[in-house]
């Protein structure tokens, strides 16, 4: 496996790999999101308690679970960067943070817009909402630190530390609805075994979720390319590539 992975520690190989997968991820994301959102907004049944406000679910839940998934990915990249001193890991951390921040913001915003009609309030300082807000601040911290240092290597190290320390927040978000009394409802989809929802609602959710996941992959690859270029701008392969593209 190491032999197979080894070439991808080389920025040039990885740059071209991301370049190649972007159109595939992009098209997958576009078509899955079109199918999923039309299904979710027009054809999925309304909830027996929440009526059509339930349709916010198809954006809120994928955004929230991806906001945590992206953080986990970012933290793993940070760990690899610290253990093996891979410069590409720093680029991955820097590429993932803004994407995660946007998904966290969407989760928080749609949660507020769903909470207002269902709970009667836009916001409460309870465990689930507060820990998700902390997640947003962690992302913003990683972004700010990456931008604060002129020296990319130092920035990467500092950002990785924040990213790793923040991992403690993930189980807190995940289990907040079980550990504390909260307005937020418990898990609907991720219960082990059968999901606690009807299949007519479950399948459009799966399609939406995959669509958003491929969206994350597409945007992350674009940002990853940028970060690789910025960190290798004086290498011969970047120079040759730029000259080729300028033709």
């Amino acid at each position: 496996m190491w032999k197979w992975l080894h070439p991808y520690a080389n920025p040039e190989t990885t740059y071209h790999l991301s370049d190649r997968v972007i159109p595939w991820f992009g098209w997958l994301s576009g078509s899955l999101l079109t199918i999923g959102l039309v299904w979710a907004l027009l054809f999925a049944p309304a909830d027996y308690q929440q009526g059509d406000s339930f349709r916010i679910f198809y954006l809120h839940v994928p955004a929230a679970s991806l906001s945590m998934g992206i953080y986990l990915g970012m933290a793993i990249a940070a760990l690899c960067g610290m253990v093996w001193q891979l410069k590409l890991s720093d680029a991955a951390v820097a590429a993932l943070a803004p994407v995660g921040a946007v998904f966290t913001a969407i989760a928080l915003f749609t949660g507020a817009a769903w909470g207002k009609p269902m709970w009667g309030t836009w916001w409460v300082w309870d465990a689930r909402l507060t820990s998700e807000l902390v997640l947003l601040f962690l992302y913003l911290g990683v972004i700010a630190i990456n931008n604060a240092f002129e020296d990319k290597q130092m920035a990467g190290k500092a950002a990785s530390i924040i990213a790793l320390v923040g991992v403690i927040n993930l189980p807190i978000i995940k289990y907040s609805v079980e550990w504390w009394n909260t307005l937020h409802q418990g898990a609907t989809v991720s219960k082990l075994g059968k999901p606690a929802m009807s299949l007519e609602m479950f399948w459009p959710f799966v399609v939406c979720f995959l669509g958003f996941a491929f969206f994350v992959a597409t945007v992350t690859c674009i940002r990853f390319k940028t970060e690789i270029l910025l960190r290798n701008s004086s290498r011969p392969w970047v120079k040759n590539l730029m000259l080729e593209q300028a033709k």
């Binding site: 406000s53 916010i56 817009a113 769903w114």
Partner: peptide
Amino acid sequence: DMGGYGFFVWLSFGFG
């Protein structure tokens, strides 16, 4: 109208 929840549903999806 989204069964009366139009404002909240479209606010969410618009923001997204």
